[in-house]
Design a binder for these strands. Structure first.
Lengths: 207, 207
DNA sequence: CGTCACTGAGTGATGATTCATTCAGTTAAT
DNA sequence: ATTAACTGAATGAATCATCACTCAGTGACG
């Protein structure tokens, strides 16, 4: 089967301000978070969004496309927000610090979305390769570029591979988020960014 | 024969040296790695293990239990190996370095197992909570204890939460593994441990 | 009336699990 | 040594519940 990934802009029912599409996405996020992607029935999503089963298919080609859309939309937003956030900053350390904070802030603000991002999206090599890959790669790229900037300006050690370093940072933040989800104890996710960046920057800064 | 009281842990088909159980586990690891847990049919596993569908159920209660067993068995082995590896070392930094190497070494040695660990096992909050949790927690605990040892002996900064720091280290290693799986380019995973530990130790060491 | 968003019962495919049956091997009595 | 009785591992076809997705129809609105 040759699937060409249809990257058409949104079409569907005369995208009226009905907001049904968004409503379905929000409902799906809730349902996926609660039951997991594979255990979620399209009927559950429809019920949660308060529409009929068939309506879901007026807005999305398949159950799979719903998951994609959740990812694509949020990832694009997050990266855009990150770019805006750092464009007026000079200090690369500060840029990375802000990105990290934004990262944990966004996930910490919506537990359901966090679960979908940290758990459901990882649960298949297919997703990892075909979709997530692109978005994650872009995010990692943002971290890398910022780090390289810092290497050029002399604030970061030049003996480190920027690519590898950006994975270390991402991995650390990612684990904070994943652990926050699993943990029963309630605590704020966002503040963890500070400690992560303390250790990280201390580790990569030029003497 | 007077002695020979069968003290073998495994139950199931009179654990003959048939090795069918192991054979099924290895086959399942291959199949899960290729198709993902939810897209893998029990029949696929049976075929790959060269046994009949029904035979699988003589050794495992359900498809789910197969996944558990893969995790439990390997995680227990890995932690035991880690404990042995560090018990004769003194320097906490060196201990952490060795654990990190073992971590990436083991995953790097078996791509299929790595995929199951990095991708398939994460794909459901249920797995994360009910099973994985215990094993992962034990591993994180090992890292934490070792770090605390280093704090007491003065080699590591005392102003850091050992729990949090162990998550940072784990996250960084975990991301190395995940990225290695997704990446098309072939490279060795194990050597990444060195760089991770360089940045990490540099970040957490007392001045 | 024509269009369009929406509905929800029905369909067909799928795949986990079961279980009646086979048969290789073991024991034991002659 | 031969046979009969027994064991339980292994088989795989059949079962049966589950859903993703379809489509014929409804009503609202201009």
């Amino acid at each position: 089967m040759i699937h060409s990934v249809n990257r058409m802009p949104r079409k569907s029912p005369r995208n009226g301000a009905s907001g049904k599409r968004e409503s379905i996405l929000r409902a799906a996020t809730r349902v996926f978070a609660r039951n997991g992607y594979f255990n979620s029935k399209v009927a559950d999503i429809a019920r949660a969004a308060d529409v009929a089963d068939g309506t879901v298919y007026l807005y999305f080609k398949s159950k799979e496309e719903i998951l994609h859309s959740i990812f694509d939309q949020n990832m694009a937003e997050a990266i855009a927000a990150g770019r805006v956030l750092i464009e007026k900053l000079r200090d690369p350390s500060e840029k990375l610090r802000r990105i990290a904070m934004l990262h944990l802030e966004r996930l910490g603000a919506d537990r359901n979305l966090a679960i979908v991002f940290q758990v459901e999206l990882r649960g298949s090599t297919k997703f990892m390769r075909e979709f997530s890959a692109a978005g994650f790669a872009e995010y990692l790229g943002l971290l890398r570029k910022t780090f390289e900037e810092g290497q050029r300006s002399g604030v970061f050690r030049k003996d480190l591979s920027a690519k590898l370093v950006s994975k270390i940072l991402f991995g650390a933040l990612d684990e904070m988020a994943t652990n926050w989800i699993i943990s029963k104890r309630k605590y704020k996710l966002e503040p963890m960014a500070e400690v992560v960046m303390d250790v990280f920057l201390n580790g990569v800064s030029a003497s």
